[in-house]
């Protein structure tokens, strides 16, 4: 994933394997991992000749921002998804908080 984030252009599995040359990974291993990342909606792939080129859906910073939004957002159905140290916000104040965050 790190390799895809730092790359400027979409990479093939072979490119990723080369970039991770120090780790001695088999091509199938790289493909398996890329497939798993694709299923999780983190990378997309497009066909190019006989190979697929993979690129990340969003930057590392975007994903961190998404996590922070999850963690701070007061949306009602996220209330049950995680438990914050500072507790939940009463329903009538949620809209106000959302305005503050935007």
């Amino acid at each position: 994933m790190e390799t895809l984030w730092t790359a400027d252009e979409p990479l093939t599995a072979r490119d990723v394997q080369d970039a991770l040359a120090g780790r001695e990974l088999a091509t199938t291993t790289v493909l398996t991992v890329l497939g798993r990342l694709e299923r999780k909606g983190l990378v997309t792939r497009e066909r190019e000749g006989r190979a697929h080129r993979y690129r990340s859906v969003a930057s590392r910073e975007d994903h961190v921002a998404e996590l922070m939004r999850d963690a701070l957002d007061a949306a009602p159905d996220r209330g049950a998804a995680l438990a914050r140290f500072l507790g939940s916000i009463p329903p009538d104040e949620r809209d106000k908080l959302r305005d503050l965050l935007d």
Binding site: K40, G41, L42, H63, L67, D70, D77, A80, A81, L82
Partner: peptide
Amino acid sequence: AVTFRTLRARRRHRDLLDLL
């Protein structure tokens, strides 16, 4: 429905956490 949405949101969040 809420249980399903919550579990899905948690899984997505956990996947990203494990990466980041």
